[in-house]
Amino acid sequence: MIEELFSFSFFQRAMLAGLLIALCAALLGVNLVLKRYSMLGDGLSHVGFGTLAVSAAAGIAPMAVAVPVVILAAFLLLRLQSSGRMKGDAAIALTSSSALAIGLIAASLSHGGNIDLHSYLFGSILAITKSDLWICVGLSIIVLALYTLSYHRIFAITFDDTFARATGLRAEVYNLLLALLTAVTVVVGMRMMGALLISSLLIFPCLTAMQVCKSYRGVVLCSAGVSICAFALGLVASFWWDTPAGATVVLANLSGFLLFYLAGHLRAQK
């Protein structure tokens, strides 16, 4: 059964692209969760949905519009968070629902003609084309390289922004870098996972790893591993049971979280 699955080229593409996105999302998610930006991914995916729906209704290539718009949204949301004029979580909630509403209205005005709402919202495994796969490969090489090279500095700005800036680190640059990489990961990943579920790839692995790991390095490595395993298991299971891929991956992540939570709990009692 599983061998048969891997013989389908669309399945191979989905698996490879998904694993790469899961890996990038897990690494970036550690910093989002620890900096209390957990909902940023959720806000960005809604903006991504709105943009995709509007550009599809207008007949423009969706990805070419979505990537810059979501990057812009990420910058603005982070700027709002640091300026203190509006609370970050309120800003994200406002943005999410507005973008979702705009997308739904755009879709209904175009009479649903060429827009597959269901696949935008909940993802589709068939959505991964050859060029999407190359985008995923390129993206993950960039994320992994930048992440590895700035590993120590990203730790410093995540743990203590003020200290990092006082010792001459250009914290804004690294915050913008993280926002940019997150935005691209969300847009690329939402095709498969769906706008409503992509943010789980960002936050679940880190929360899972934090249940058992004591060091930052441990959390980073563990969430990468957890994310890859959960995605592979979830995707195979979704074919097995004929369930939606995105939702099954989220449930695999949830199972992983519960398992690690229990393990952390048992270890604490010993």
């Binding site: 410093a156 203590d160 200290f163």
Partner: peptide, 22 residues
């Protein structure tokens, strides 16, 4: 101290090592 640090997973060596980055 910041609120972020109260549940941040990092060991002592990692925290001290972030002082040499400059």
């Amino acid at each position: 101290k910041t609120a972020v640090q109260s549940d941040f997973p990092a060991n002592v060596r990692e925290v001290v090592a972030s002082g040499v980055l400059n």
